[in-house]
């Protein structure tokens, strides 16, 4: 029997809007293996962001099950989900969502401190990530002083500081120009190559082509699933480009 890091069963989310029901998710079954990189694609409003929020414990499903690393997420209280999120889930958002009046260093350290690491341990991990992501010199800056690509790098560092079980990325290149987007994708690929499980929600086929598997959604349902092979032309081209960019 195959072990999944992340699994949903019959996941359904219904919003009520002035008495009428809106089915954001309908009986979604999704499973992600450890070390896998999965992309979720679909048109705007198809439910992909709602799925990501529920997988990360930011929202509750109306029905169905969510399992993360063997734990039943949908049965947890909000506080229990928050505690689980600290260690198991890292988030990257399209709008970066850095805290404006904390320095880059403090933004990265914050989740580590919340998770109970000492200041010394948090700083050690922060410095390592800043070094890996090539923004060591930005530690004392505030987010407003950084470019879009640098901000998303900080967001990635923050997402990885607690060495999460899974990294959830919501349109991570949506606010970036193409050159900066490639840089961020290169880092994501690099992270994945180091064994990090990643689930990306995106509209961009180029981003999706980085994944091993692409899940297509429409009207709250998974309508298709494609496994991308290394020999896939698009994928190969993009990977090569990323490798070139990375030097």
């Amino acid at each position: 029997m195959e072990t999944y890091l992340l699994e949903t069963k019959q996941l359904t989310k219904v919003y009520r809007n002035n008495g009428s029901k809106v089915h954001a998710l309908q009986e979604v079954d999704l499973a992600v293996k450890p070390g896998e990189m999965v992309a979720v694609m679909g048109p705007s409003g198809c439910g992909k962001s709602t799925l990501l929020h529920i997988l990360g414990g930011l929202d509750n499903p109306t029905s169905g099950e969510v399992h993360i690393n063997g734990q039943r997420l949908d049965k947890m209280s909000e506080a229990q989900r928050a505690v689980l999120r600290r260690k198991q889930v890292g988030f990257m958002f399209q709008a970066f969502n850095l805290i404006g009046n904390l320095s880059v260093g403090d933004n990265i350290e914050l989740p580590a401190l919340v998770a109970g690491l000492s200041v010394r341990q948090a700083r050690k991990r922060r410095d390592a990530l800043l070094e890996d992501l090539g923004i060591s010199d930005k530690s004392r800056n505030i987010p407003a002083q950084l470019s879009g690509g640098e901000r998303q790098r900080v967001a990635l560092a923050r997402a990885l500081v607690n060495q999460p079980t899974i990294l959830l990325a919501d349109e991570p290149t949506g606010n970036l120009d193409s050159k900066t987007a490639y840089e961020v994708l290169r880092l994501l690929r690099q992270t994945h190559m180091q064994g990090q499980t990643i689930l990306i929600v995106t509209n961009d086929p180029n981003v999706a082509s980085l994944a091993q598997r692409v899940v297509f959604m429409r009207d709250g349902r998974i309508i298709n699933e494609t496994i991308l092979q290394e020999r896939d032309d698009t994928k190969t081209l993009l990977v090569e480009l990323l490798n070139l960019e990375g030097g």
Partner: peptide
């Protein structure tokens, strides 16, 4: 928005 970020990073409602 800041509270949303903090919650996403693992702060509980009580915190």
């Amino acid at each position: 928005r800041d509270f949303g970020i903090q919650k996403a990073l693992g702060l509980t409602p009580a915190q």
